[in-house]
């Protein structure tokens, strides 16, 4: 029993220590943003690695999610005779919740774990150390560009997800199930408010991008420099990102969509 409490205490303390290290790491990386802005090449490379390579999985997932929403939504709404509001239902679900959240989760799984593995491997093969000895700050050179790329990519990917999803819902609802084309869009436009829904959704995706990229980069930077350590770090990235995204989603939703 005492052993259990001791372990719990130790783990909690270690957790706080890690959070502290992570915060210093974040501040250092944010400070480095200024020095990489005059070097767009670095940022572009990372935008490619993080954004472009996630493009496919995000759009395909968005399409399927939108199509399922169209299908399920139709069945549920037809019980109330409200099929014409399908467009509004699909759009609201995507823009407010599924777009930012699912994109963030997919991002953490694909781009996040790849970032962790890359940084972890650089640590394990002493590349980060080597850079330090060459008087190049590895955080400014390696971490900051990746951080910026993640932050910029997320809202773009979430918007793409929502857009493709809405089109997918259209394909199923209007194309296959007979919902009126005009109603699909007009109900949507009447019901989705730019500030309350679109802007809030974008804010959510920026927050998720910030947190997910931070976790991914820090887990890689902090990992034990062995191959086992790196593989465990990538798992931690995905798990911790998932917890953070879902937890933050609740908080943000309560703040934004309450009255």
């Amino acid at each position: 029993m005492i052993q259990l409490l001791q372990n719990l205490g130790r783990t909690t303390r270690a957790g706080f220590t890690k959070l502290g290290r992570g915060t210093f790491f974040l501040l250092h990386a944010l400070g480095g943003l200024g020095s990489i802005l005059p070097r767009p090449r670095l940022i572009l490379n990372q935008l490619y690695a993080v954004g472009v390579l996630s493009f496919l999985i995000i759009t395909i997932s968005g399409l399927f999610v939108g199509m399922v929403l169209g299908l399920q939504g139709y069945y549920i709404l037809s019980d109330f005779g409200a099929e014409e509001t399908l467009g509004l239902m699909v759009a609201a679900s995507l823009v407010r919740e599924l777009g930012p959240v699912v994109t963030a989760l997919l991002f953490a799984g694909r781009a996040g774990s790849a970032l962790t593995a890359e940084i972890g491997l650089m640590k394990a093969t002493e590349q980060l150390s080597g850079m330090e000895m060459m008087a190049v700050d590895p955080i400014k050179r390696i971490i900051s560009p990746r951080f910026l790329a993640g932050l910029l990519s997320m809202p773009l990917l979430a918007a793409l997800f929502s857009m493709v999803g809405i089109l997918g819902g259209h394909m199923v609802g209007v194309g296959m199930l007979g919902v009126d084309e005009g109603s699909y869009w007009s109900q949507m436009q009447a019901g989705i408010d730019f500030q309350d829904d679109i802007v809030n959704g974008v804010i959510k995706s920026i927050v998720f991008g910030f947190v997910t990229t931070w976790i991914a980069l820090f887990e890689g930077y902090d990992t034990i420099p062995t191959s086992e350590g790196v593989s465990r770090a990538t798992t931690r990235t995905v798990v911790n990102s998932a917890f953070s995204i879902l937890g933050l989603d609740f908080i943000l939703t309560a703040l934004m969509f309450g009255d």
Binding site: L121, M122, T125, S129, G130, M131, E132, M133
Partner: peptide, 17 residues
Amino acid sequence: NLRKRMGMLFQSGALLT
């Protein structure tokens, strides 16, 4: 600045992959 005048060769080479 001092490190710029020091070279270091790591065991694995530590080349940027």
